[in-house]
């Protein structure tokens, strides 16, 4: 009996351990990072592309982490960065770093606006309530061009110089993985594939299309004191 009793205690203990392990394992899976690499058609890293993941289970859209506040700068008569991505419902700060006036506008898409940033360091906050592509320009400096993608998911990033993005805390689910760039020659400038994520190994996505030429954001007259003649 004594032996049996001990065995019973051991069994309970073992079961408890197993349960903890399973929970731990589940928990570990919940915080498993997912690395995604995007390659162009030549197999080279595709830099500055938006990668965003849409979970098939809508409950997974609710996350605890707070998104980083996005800023779009006007510096040296260019939009910097050229591409910005934010989640629907976020505010974006437009910051003029030049000592001249910029007239920033969006005349198309889910959000239309027009405002002047006259002084250096002047800011304007714009709230983006709808998802979609916002193409921005400057009505004074036509060569300036910037893009904002508003997505309906908290899981988004922009590929680095290695063509990589890392999603640190991804719930386990089937995801539509979208890769977007304003010059990607595909319908809606994006490529979609479905994967069950996170996976144990890094995921590699190869683009199915080429890019149009990316604007240089530079006037044909390289001079600081142009006057719109």
């Amino acid at each position: 009996m004594a032996v049996l009793c001990i065995s019973s205690v051991k069994l309970k203990s073992s079961l408890k351990m197993l349960l903890v392990s399973i929970v731990a394992l589940l928990f570990t899976q919940r915080v498993l990072a997912q690395q995604i690499t995007v390659l162009n058609q030549q197999g080279q890293p595709a830099v500055d592309l938006v990668v965003y993941l849409q979970p098939h289970n809508e409950a997974n859209l609710v996350v605890e982490f707070v998104p980083v506040k996005a800023e779009v700068h006007q510096k040296d008569k260019r939009f910097s960065p050229y591409i910005t991505v934010v989640q629907k419902g976020q505010e974006v700060a437009f910051v003029n770093q030049d000592d001249i006036t910029h007239h920033i506008y969006s005349a198309l898409g889910p959000k239309r606006f027009s405002f002047k940033l006259r002084n250096e360091q002047e800011q304007e906050l714009i709230l983006f309530e709808k998802s979609g592509h916002v193409s921005m320009g400057c009505n004074i400096h036509d060569w300036m061009s910037g893009h904002l993608l508003v997505v309906d998911t908290p899981f988004y990033a922009i590929t680095d110089s290695q063509g990589q993005v890392v999603f640190d805390s991804l719930p386990e689910d089937d995801f539509t993985v979208q890769v977007w760039h304003p010059q990607l020659k595909l319908t809606d400038n994006q490529q979609s594939q479905t994967f069950h994520l996170p996976q144990e190994h890094p995921l590699t996505i190869t683009l199915e299309a080429e890019f149009d030429s990316i604007p240089k954001q530079q006037s044909l007259d390289e001079f600081e004191f142009l006057e719109g003649y």
Binding site: D221, E222, F223, F225, L226, E227, Y229
Partner: peptide
């Protein structure tokens, strides 16, 4: 005003860069 012809005179006060 000037007619829109010159490709040189694009700087402040119609100067050429």
């Amino acid at each position: 005003m000037y007619p829109k012809i010159s490709l040189e005179n694009v700087a402040t006060t119609w100067a050429s860069p």
